[in-house]
Design a protein around this nucleic acid. Structure first.
Length: 872
RNA sequence: GCGGGCGUGGUGGAACUGGUAGACACACAGGACUUAAAAUCCUGAGGCCUUUGUGCCGUGCGGGUUCGAGUCCCGCCGCCCGCACCA
């Protein structure tokens, strides 16, 4: 780490500040909405202002910045904004722990992180910056909410929530650990609360189907979203209840099934313990009441669900088979049926569903196979421990017998349809999005509750509903709830005493449309139509894969909902998505087992002798596994330390080198040192080059010698390769290309002469292109080197050069010559050589002759420009 | 259990539609410069072999297709990620 740089010419931290000021003074990165050039919108997921930036941010924003700077050089009008995902719980926790107002805490963090990000030298248009906790932002969000409400895309209903009785708050699922609140440790209760929902299920089918159009998204993310939406096509089948025996108001059970073809294999019907009929029966049946209670008590942890036994309770009721009046089917309440999915009721066909089979075996219900796989026959086919879920021909199923599963599905639904006992239906796993949070630091839901008028929207001209500043976090629960003057208002509709909605919105709402707001960040409407039509969709979105489902799905929903409310005209907000890997680091523990930060650790030796000791005390330190940088394991490297010591370009370059961007990268001191050394090598190389290269604007000489032409070939090939690699976000390969090209220049520099016009010209070209190639990755160094070329422009204003095609193609090529598939020699030959000539030349090679010996050549395979294979 | 991905030197990783495996970097070793060190520059390097060669082996393992397989197919093994009683 402590490398002397006093005798180095390039002082990165100083030069970086200098160039950042140059760009800032020229307002270089301010993007105009009235620019005629083709647009390119590059966006990285905006950060949560937690306090300080971490290496994950550096990696994320470095990648985005490479794309932004590259596209700018390619002549695009680039939009590259930055903002803050600024609402959320940590601010309230800070308020409770440190008695600091959430707003103050948040804006201070933003100030710190903004200055840290600025040190990275990102080509960001800071004029468009906003935080989601800015009143101006959530004001517009409240308008969107009211628009959604009008279109029935927002609504209110009662739903179960995880309630922490100590903190008086609702907990997200991930905040419930082993059934206890993550903060209070109290047993979490399931409570019914009236909550606001966004009707994401309205777009379920489109959200599902449109995934196929997102060809610039990672397959992985699309698959995850598909699973999350969970589309399944089937039928809603109605089973008539024996009305004599069942409670008033119930006459049938509706079940959803994806296997209506197995209806003749049904041996029971099952109800969820939460099913209204089950609850109704339980009122007069204490045994069932007990059973339902037991189901509720059953754990929710993974292990418990995995090992839970299928349990049921026979209600004594029966239903009639929809296609046979004489067929009575028993009705059970069963613990494995979810009220949340389908209708909360099923029919059980044990032969072809594992869960039903487990259940049937336990309660000794009939198991009739109705689908027989090919190769088996009806007489002998038996279901033992495993249900058969594969394809086959129907059997034991009356008019369906002999049909395939697919045909049978259609036939039976048609039949059921005739008698009115079934409908085709598509079910989704996706639930509507509950956005109510019983917290202070979020966007207030602009609603006033009146006893007479119910939930009344706050009139548009009374928006925004601002968060009150004078709140206290001394009492548990939501401060908005015990703020009398804020909470108690008059009903906008009848003027009677009323109270504000004290819930605020899930912070995922804030991040579901920020990409749109950046197009017109100051507008007094959520989005300006003209701006948004120009900029959206985002051409390249970059962020962590941890947002693969929720954030991206919610954003896709918002685009659709905003289209439905006439705010915009597209439905897919992100045309290209890239999910980058994490930044990892070794972990260290001292003798007491406490985690140690890397700054306190000194590494000695290498390989098997590699040891770590405490930098101060010299005590031995255990080197642990490589893990994601996290506060809990203390294995974090602070970008600030790196930037102040090595400069931003080192951090950026290292984050882009080596590891493919979608994979995890390990931060090592050695790697950072390597990047730093390369920066200085480049700097020296440019200084040496300036001595030999032609002056700025020297025209191409008429004759250029072989050596110079060779360098030019390398130059143009590298340019081409780096361009395509950046375009394809293969930054690690672009980096490797630059290293390789640097070697070529180094060699040329040793052999070239200033008074050779061709060589001087080729050198100038090589350096010019080299600087442009690494410019997007190390913009400060590049700008500095560019200035040394004395061409009186800024690199940032220089267009990406176009490679000359003729220089991309070699005249001769080296190809391998194999004998029986084993490489024996190689052949340098004109690229345009005829196959006959290649064969002749190959057969004349000494090594080839020797390998052939006196054997007969049976066949010669020639793939032009690739290989010769001689078969003997 | 289901779905997706991956497995290449000491390490991170290259290798386009099957066509010279190991680019590039890190670490390492040797050399140059230096009184010395650091820095820098140059060179070397997949493994095996008391046959150092015009040799053999080699991309998790075992088969297959092919003139030719890291790449395609079949079967295993291992690792990572996501989902999970979804009817």
């Amino acid at each position: 780490m402590a490398t002397e740089q006093s005798n180095e010419r390039y002082n990165a931290p100083v030069r970086e500040k200098y160039w950042q000021k140059v760009w800032q003074d020229k307002k270089t990165f301010c993007t105009s909405n009235d620019d005629e050039r083709p647009k390119y919108y590059v966006l990285e997921m905006f950060p949560y202002p937690s306090g300080r930036i971490h290496m994950g941010h550096v990696r994320n924003y470095a990648m985005g910045d490479v794309v932004a700077r590259f596209k700018r050089a390619k002549g695009f009008n680039v939009l590259h904004p930055m903002g803050w995902d600024a609402f959320g719980m940590p601010a309230e926790n800070a308020a409770m722990q440190r008695k600091v107002h959430p707003g103050e805490w948040t804006y201070q963090n933003i100030a710190t992180m903004r200055s840290q990000l600025k040190m990275l030298g990102l080509s960001v248009d800071w004029d468009r910056e906003f935080a989601t906790c800015d009143v101006e932002y959530y004001h517009q969000q409240q308008k969107l909410f009211l628009d959604f409400l009008k279109k029935d895309l927002a609504y209110r209903r009662s739903s179960k929530v995880n309630w922490d009785p100590v903190d008086n708050t609702v907990l997200a699922n991930e905040q419930v650990i082993d059934g206890k609140g993550w903060r209070s440790g109290a047993d979490v209760e399931q409570r019914k609360l009236t909550q606001w929902f966004l009707r994401i299920t309205h777009f379920a089918d489109d959200l599902h189907a449109s995934l196929d159009t997102l060809d610039r998204w990672p397959e992985k993310v699309r698959v995850m979203q598909k699973n999350w939406i969970g589309k399944s096509e089937g039928a809603l089948v109605r089973f008539a209840l024996d009305e004599q025996k069942c409670p008033d108001g119930f006459s049938q059970i509706e079940v959803f099934t994806t296997r209506p073809d197995t209806l003749f294999g049904a041996s029971f019907c099952g109800l969820s313990p939460d099913h209204p009929l089950a609850i109704e029966i339980a009122k007069t049946n204490p045994e069932l009441k007990n059973f339902i209670k037991e189901c509720e008590r059953a754990g929710t942890t993974q292990e418990e669900i995995d090992t839970a036994e299928k349990l049921g309770f026979n209600t004594g009721l029966t239903v009639t088979h929809p296609l046979d009046d004489n067929w009575q089917i028993p009705v059970y309440v069963a613990n494995f049926i979810l009220m949340d999915y389908g209708t909360g009721a099923i029919f059980g066909c044990p032969a072809h569903d594992q869960r039903d089979l487990d259940f049937a075996r336990k309660y000794e219900l009939g198991v009739t196979p109705v689908v027989v796989p090919s190769g088996e026959d009806i007489e002998s086919f038996q279901i033992k421990e495993e249900a058969y879920t594969g394809p086959g021909k129907l059997a034991n199923s009356r008019f369906l017998d002999g049909m395939t599963v697919k045909d049978a599905k259609k036939a039976i639904i048609d039949k059921l349809d005739e008698t009115g006992s079934a409908d085709r239906q598509t079910q989704y796993r996706l639930r509507d999005w509950g956005i109510s949070r019983q917290r202070y630091w979020g966007c207030p839901i602009p609603i006033i509750h009146c006893k007479k008028c119910d939930a009344v929207p706050v009139p548009i001209d009374e928006l925004p509903v601002k968060l009150p500043d004078d709140v206290s976090f001394d009492k548990p629960g939501n401060p908005l709830n015990h703020h009398p003057t804020w909470k108690n208002v008059k009903c906008p509709s009848c003027g009677a005493k009323a109270r504000r909605e004290t819930d605020t919105m899930d912070t995922f709402v804030d991040s579901s449309w920020y990409y749109a707001r950046f197009c017109s960040p100051k507008a007094d409407v959520p989005v300006e139509r003209e701006a948004i039509d120009k900029w959206l969709p985002v051409d390249q979105y970059i962020g962590g894969v941890e947002h693969a489902i929720l954030h991206l799905l919610y954003s896709r929903f918002f685009a659709r909902a905003m289209r439905a409310t006439d705010h915009l005209s597209i439905s897919e907000p992100f045309a290209g998505l890239f999910t980058q890997g994490m930044v990892n680091h070794e972990t260290y523990q001292d003798e007491s087992g406490a985690w140690l930060a890397p700054v306190y650790v000194r590494i000695e030796g290498d390989g098997f002798d590699r040891k770590a000791v405490h930098d101060k005390t010299g005590e031995p330190v255990t080197i642990g596994s490589i893990e994601k940088m996290s506060k809990s394991k203390h294995n974090v490297v602070d970008p600030d330390d790196i930037i102040t010591h090595y400069g931003a370009d080192t951090a950026r370059w290292f984050m882009l080198s080596d590891s493919p961007p979608e994979r995890d990268v390990v931060w090592t001191d050695a790697g950072a040192e390597g990047a730093w050394r390369f920066i200085h090598r480049l700097s020296r190389l440019v200084d040496d080059g300036v001595e030999l290269m032609a002056d700025h604007d020297t025209p191409e000489p008429a004759k250029i010698g072989d050596k110079a032409v060779e360098l030019r070939r390398h130059t143009h090939k590298a340019l081409q390769a780096v361009g395509t690699d950046i375009e394809g976000l293969r930054f690690n390969r672009a980096v490797a290309q630059i290293y390789e090209f640097t070697k070529h220049i180094t060699t040329a520099l040793k052999n070239f002469k200033r008074d050779n016009q061709g060589e001087a010209f080729a050198l100038r070209e090589a350096f010019t292109f080299l600087i442009q190639m690494f410019g997007p990755m190390m913009p400060h160094l590049a700008e500095d080197c560019w200035a040394r070329l004395q061409c009186n422009t800024l690199l940032i204003d220089s267009p990406w050069p176009t490679p000359i095609k003729a220089l991309l193609i070699d005249e001769t090529i080296k190809i391998a010559v194999q004998v029986n598939g084993k490489r024996r020699d190689e052949l340098t030959i004109l690229i345009a050589a005829a196959n006959d000539d290649i064969e002749k030349a190959a057969l004349e090679l000494d090594n080839v002759k020797r390998s052939i010996g006196d054997k007969k050549v049976r066949k010669v395979i020639i793939v032009p420009k690739r290989i010769v294979n001689i078969v003997i």
